[in-house]
Amino acid sequence: MPPTESGTSSGSEEAFAHPREASPDDALDDTLDLHLPPEVTAMFSAEPITAEPITADPAGSPRAGFLLDDVADWGPATTHAGPFQLVPVRLDRDLSLISGWMNDPAVAAFWELAGPEEITAAHLRTQLDGDGRSVPCLGVLAGLPMSYWEVYRADLDPVARYYPARPHDTGLHLLIGGVADRGRGLGTALLRATADLVLDHRPQCGRVIAEPDLRNTPSVAAFLGAGFRYCDEIDLPGKRAALMVRDRAHRHLL
């Protein structure tokens, strides 16, 4: 199961929680452990998609954009800090950068991916080699990569066992990489921009959801500031989480 924002001990709203809520032996540890329904898998027997894989990785699946409406093609969103865009991760290009962020103590406290690069690589490969229900991305602000995101199909994720999921619910996990980018309101602005990107480009998605660690009060506050509502508390493997929901129907009211 993916994360949300990285460390919070410093009081920074941008240090958010990690997606790994379970131990390696737990069946719910992996975002990709659920089976797709037959009507979905049948669609993969059609002619191959000719567009470039959203991972931009030669090892990535050419169908990686199917379940999330081609994240790679969403384009930028406007924020007060400049244009912001989700760029699907390419392992050969991005591993060192993301692994460095994972070794920041504020991030490691929630993501639990500190250590050699191979630890982060294994986490990324699980998604890159999967069926596309979770897409790892760099968050690029004004041309510079400064955050890590996972956009995932919450209705196809183990988290769906813990809340009343609806078809096409889309989840977000994130961390702000650089210390200089934390604590200045970017988390709220980027969460709002990214939720808007999801709703703009995924017409069948009625809700964007997240499940930050309940103890991570700056993260919860950032979601609230971005137009999410505090919907419930749920017990996930490894954490008690705040279920945050941003509804399409209310997006212009919050």
Rank of each mutant, 00 (worst) to 15 (best):
T4I: 09
T8V: 06
T8N: 13
S9V: 11
S9N: 13
S10I: 07
S10N: 14
E13V: 09
E13C: 10
E14A: 15
A17P: 07
A22Q: 03
A22E: 05
A22F: 07
S23F: 12
S23C: 08
D29W: 14
D30T: 11
T31G: 14
H35N: 12
L36W: 03
P37V: 01
P38E: 14
V40Y: 09
A42E: 15
T50P: 03
A51R: 14
P53Q: 04
I54N: 12
I54A: 09
A56F: 13
A56E: 12
P58D: 12
P58S: 11
S61V: 08
R63K: 08
F66Q: 12
L67G: 07
L67D: 10
D69Q: 09
D69H: 14
D70F: 13
D70G: 11
V71F: 06
A72E: 08
A72C: 10
A72P: 08
D73L: 15
W74I: 11
G75R: 10
P76I: 13
A77F: 04
T79F: 05
Q85R: 14
L86E: 09
L86N: 09
V89L: 07
R90I: 01
L91N: 01
L91Y: 01
L91H: 01
L91T: 05
R93H: 06
R93Q: 05
R93K: 04
D94F: 01
S96G: 15
L97G: 01
I98R: 01
I98D: 02
I98K: 01
S99M: 08
S99F: 08
D104H: 13
A108Y: 07
G115Q: 05
G115I: 03
T120R: 06
T120G: 07
A121M: 02
H123I: 03
H123C: 12
Q127K: 14
Q127Y: 15
L128T: 11
D129S: 13
G130K: 00
G132I: 10
V135S: 04
P136V: 08
G139S: 07
L141F: 04
A142D: 14
A142T: 03
G143H: 06
L144F: 06
V151I: 15
R153F: 11
A154D: 02
D157S: 13
A160H: 06
A160V: 04
A160P: 02
Y163M: 07
A165F: 00
H168F: 15
G171N: 05
G171K: 03
G171W: 03
L172I: 15
L172K: 09
H173M: 09
L174K: 11
G177H: 02
G178L: 11
V179L: 13
V179A: 15
A180F: 01
D181P: 00
R184S: 02
L190A: 02
A193S: 03
A193M: 01
A195N: 05
D196T: 12
V198I: 15
V198P: 02
H201C: 12
H201Y: 12
R202T: 14
Q204R: 14
C205W: 07
C205M: 07
G206Y: 05
R207H: 09
R207F: 06
V208I: 11
L214I: 12
T217K: 12
V220F: 00
V220N: 00
V220C: 01
G225H: 04
G225M: 08
R229G: 10
Y230R: 10
C231W: 06
D232R: 00
D232N: 01
L236Y: 00
K239F: 00
L243V: 00
M244F: 10
V245N: 02
R246Q: 02
R248G: 05
H252Y: 12
L253P: 01
